[in-house]
Design a protein around this nucleic acid. Structure first.
Lengths: 235, 235
DNA sequence: TGATTTATACCACTTTAGTGGTAGACTTCC
DNA sequence: GGAAGTCTACCACTAAAGTGGTATAAATCA
């Protein structure tokens, strides 16, 4: 990506406005940005795999990617996380250079910036400034994983269902509309909470009955946020 | 801790031989070690809490600490991890400076080196060299949390029970003897896999019946590692 | 030493979660 | 437009996990 071009300016601003990387100085962004390439995938594609991510590092700029694992014995799927604009992948490979076996699937059309993993590692070693943005990002990610494990161990499927909505609502400017988990099938929603479609569906029917949500094909609307938060407290 | 003393030399060697921090240069270790204090706790104590860990950073040198979370609605406990000699706490606070609400309990008599959190953060910012040891440590921790969440979502209690033993056996020089999870009650073992004591106990009875393990009060001996690994493969 | 607490084995029972199926509505793709 | 596929609602059934209890042995403590 050449400096001075419209594209360059666009992604410069993207990084400056990204919550995790806004702390980087202009000088650094100008130094690293020329090394990035733009890549695109269609919804349904598998953008990243463990072969790729050993050698390439990605910053997602458009769309969402689900990262998941499959139990080979029974085909059951668990969605580890949903990456969105401003997220990087694969953070674990960046840290320890080992392969990381997960599957990925584009939930929307995807655009991402990519750079050789080797280069990303060099930058981190060369510029201590990266730590200022990288370390809090890592802390955030660590909390996320720890909380997910804890929730799976301590909460039942009903509580996890409600929490799934509460978490999305909380990180959202328009709380009645889901953001990160919008437009997902009940199967995907179930796989996010580590349960089965039919189980989640039972809980959705209950929430519908109580007028907390409305369900359409591939779309759920939160109709009563207070009631949702109340159920969360008492769950 | 004064340079030149026996204690200083002892902990100098401790760090040099610690798998995660052996990469640090002598110069750095000599610079930071004088700032550390030695602290001790008895088995059963709660060495760390979220108030403390905002301001102090620990490196465990002796004994094990269980880090756990409790569901306030029903009292159910989940053991997030067991820290042992060479582990640091709290890594998450170090990264993002936010409070981290977990409970801790000493499984043995504990000795740890402590240093003000502020100082630890300064070192990381000042010495890029720390990244060489810190980042792989973080990657390791991240994998651990991600795998735990995935296991809870995709494996049943039987598989998680077997995996609990397999993981301990694999990191151990004397495979028949448990290390990290040695001397734990069935309640603790159950809380490690996110299940209940009675459920875990049923699985132990089955493993006993199949001559894979022998169970005594606060002690489990692996009698047939091959059979254990076989059950793991087929679970 | 005797009393109390803790740890484990074992059993019956309940609840929750998971499975498998049908039917109908909506999409997507020829 | 019609066929095929996907998504959701709903139902009955099964399996797994969790609960609550007793009995007994070992450890701890007064």
């Amino acid at each position: 990506m050449k400096k001075g071009t419209t594209k360059f300016n666009y992604y410069f601003n993207f990084i400056k406005n990204s919550p995790h990387f806004s702390g980087l100085s202009n000088k650094i962004i100008e130094e690293i940005l020329p090394e990035f390439s733009i890549e695109n995938w269609k919804k349904g594609d598998s953008p990243f795999n463990s072969e790729l991510t050993k050698n390439k590092f990605y910053l997602i700029t458009k769309g969402r990617v689900k990262v998941f694992q499959i139990n080979s014995a029974n085909g059951k799927e668990y969605i580890i996380e949903i990456l969105a604009s401003g997220n990087i992948f694969d953070i674990i490979c960046l840290l320890d250079s080992q392969e990381h076996h997960v599957f990925t699937e584009a939930l929307d059309d995807i655009e991402a910036l990519s750079v050789p993993m080797k280069l990303a590692k060099e930058w981190i070693n060369k510029h201590p400034e990266f730590n200022k943005t990288l370390l809090p990002y890592l802390g955030n990610q660590m909390r996320f994983f720890e909380e997910n494990a804890t929730d799976l161990a301590l909460l039942n499927t009903w509580s996890r269902t409600i929490k799934l909505f509460v978490k999305d609502v909380n990180t959202n400017l328009h709380p009645s509309q889901l953001k990160l988990i919008n437009n997902l099938s009940h199967t995907d929603l179930a796989n996010l909470i580590g349960s089965a479609r039919n189980v989640l569906n039972r809980h959705l029917q209950k929430l519908k009955e109580d007028k907390v949500i409305e369900v359409e094909r591939n779309h759920i609307e939160i109709k009563n946020i207070e009631a949702l938060l109340n159920k969360f407290k008492n769950s």
